[in-house]
Design a protein around this nucleic acid. Structure first.
Length: 448
RNA sequence: GACCCGUUCGUCUAUCGGUUAGGACUCCAGAUUUUCAUUCUGGCAAGAAGGGUUCGACUCCCUUACGGGUCGCCA
């Protein structure tokens, strides 16, 4: 592989960011946001985004976790320019395959007398002095390495011959010519260690930007099992990738305007490290769902129907011929695609349940039962059953029965759907068809 | 415990010395929708506390409190 001057020259001024997860669990929203910020920054600056898998801990790595990272990032739309399945001039992109590279760099430390053996492992000897970092988010932070009790020399090579995170991370960032390291604040205290290593190597340090962590709604650290923690859960619940990207971008970053709903492209156009906050943000699932609804509102009806289909099927409902129309009727009523099955079940089969509260409300209305009875009997005489016509016909029926149409709407809705909320009543009438409507209204009237 | 970072409505945030401290989510009320949702209008709700600096502080400094992070042959 040629690593001559030409490449060094052309990449000198270019931005290269990376996401470096270790495949020891599923992809976490915190990790996803770190990846997102790196991706946004690289895209914004016209640079490259690299995916590097830090799989040095063989005991904890799993293939499932590796796949979860790829799947999660692909789903979110965070495409990488270099990395697994993509290649690039700085590979390999799995640390487990970079052994020779690490050995060579370790040799430099050895020759420089910066490491010493301790119990079979090798420790890096820190220079005992204050180390200052210039973080793009945190500003200037100084850690005093003269205080040895707080900064013991770190192990860089284990007694089994493998290398630890700090070492491989620094070597790879140098080797891959990473220009900006954007990572979680939990790495802030590691940075002076990395700076010392880089100095010992005689390398040029990348710019660092430590972003605040994401917390649970109660302020505790967000970890596995917490609601919303696993990126893999989002598709299952019916979130749109663009909505999740939008929402997690808002955690710790602000456009500094009143706008909140952005497409990924719009985020790229606005993203800057300057607008990243310092304080950790709590994860508000309700707002995440609202953001999803806003994105759902913007998708085309056909796409909404197609995206809803798998959820409806998974709920055990058969897809009817008029499914596109059914989906369109509930498009504006749901926040998640996962809510679609429960919203359309009564339009597909007869196995839907009745909401007791809604039924009780109708029962409390003495006139409802009689009115519904009249209504059921008159359906047969209505010829045009389009949504608008069906609604118009309601007026006539109500008038004939000496009642106003308004008060009839709610009982009819409950009679047809079993609940108080749902699609437009005209849509329900039309989607259900005249016969099913008559049967349901009659049955419901008898039930009262 | 030591060392770092942080602290504006319940939550996400705007404000970069002078504002009736703005927006969004949630919640409540009203309008529209003959119904539901959408939408619109209005409302509730905040500068952790105490000292400074200043004509003037949410904004700058200090202290305390609280929260988070780091102190591994994990990453």
């Amino acid at each position: 592989m040629d690593r001559g001057d030409s490449r060094a020259y052309t990449t000198r001024m270019s931005v290269r960011t990376r996401f470096a997860p270790s495949p020891t669990g599923y992809l976490h929203v915190g990790g996803a946001r770190t990846a997102l910020f790196n991706w946004l920054f690289a895209r914004r600056m016209g640079g490259s985004f690299i995916l590097r898998v830090e799989d040095t801990d063989e005991a904890r790595n799993t293939d499932e976790a590796r796949q979860a990272i790829f799947d999660g990032m692909s789903w979110l739309g965070l495409d990488w320019d270099e990395g697994p399945a993509k290649g690039g001039d700085y590979g390999p992109y799995f640390q487990s395959e970079r052994r020779e590279i690490y050995d060579a760099w370790f040799q430099k430390l050895l020759e420089a007398g910066r490491v010493y053996e301790d119990g079979g492992a090798w420790r890096f000897r820190f220079e005992r002095k204050p180390v200052t970092m210039h973080d793009l988010v945190c500003g200037e932070v100084t850690i005093d390495y003269r205080d040895e009790s707080n900064t013991p020399d770190m192990v860089v090579k284990r007694s089994d011959g493998s290398y630890v995170f700090h070492f491989v991370n620094v070597v790879d960032d140098l080797e891959m010519e990473i220009s900006h390291v954007i990572r979680g604040e939990d790495h802030l205290m590691n940075t002076p260690k990395h700076l010392q290593l880089i100095e010992a190597f005689g390398g040029k340090a990348p710019q660092y930007a430590h972003i605040p962590l994401i917390l649970n709604p109660d302020g505790s650290k967000m970890s596995k099992r917490d609601a919303g923690a696993a990126v893999g859960d989002y598709p299952r619940q019916g979130f749109l990738p663009s909505a999740v990207v939008n929402f997690i971008a808002l955690l710790g970053w602000s456009s500094k305007t009143d706008e909140e709903i952005f497409t990924p492209e719009e985020l790229i156009g606005r993203f800057t490290l300057d607008n990243v906050n310092r304080a950790p943000a709590r994860f508000d699932f309700e707002k995440c769902k609202w953001v999803n609804q806003q994105h759902l509102l913007k998708v085309a009806a056909d796409d909404f129907a197609a995206a809803s289909k798998p959820f409806v099927e998974a709920a055990g409902l058969a897809i009817p011929e008029n499914f596109a129309a059914i989906a369109a009727a509930v498009k504006e009523k749901v926040r998640l695609l996962g809510e679609v099955p429960a919203a359309v079940d009564f339009l597909i089969g007869d196995g839907y349940s009745h909401d007791e509260e809604a039924v009780a409300k109708v029962r409390a209305n003495a006139a409802a039962k009689e009115l519904l009875g009249v209504l059921a009997g008159s359906f047969g005489s209505i010829d045009d059953w389009s949504a608008d016509a069906a609604k118009a016909a309601l007026n006539e029926v109500a008038k004939a029965a000496g009642a106003k149409p308004g008060p009839l709407m709610f009982p009819l809705r409950v009679a047809l759907s079993g609940r108080g909320h749902g699609p437009d009543i005209g849509d329900i009438l039309n989607l259900l068809g005249k016969d099913r409507c008559a049967a349901r209204v009659r049955k419901f009237a008898d039930m009262l």
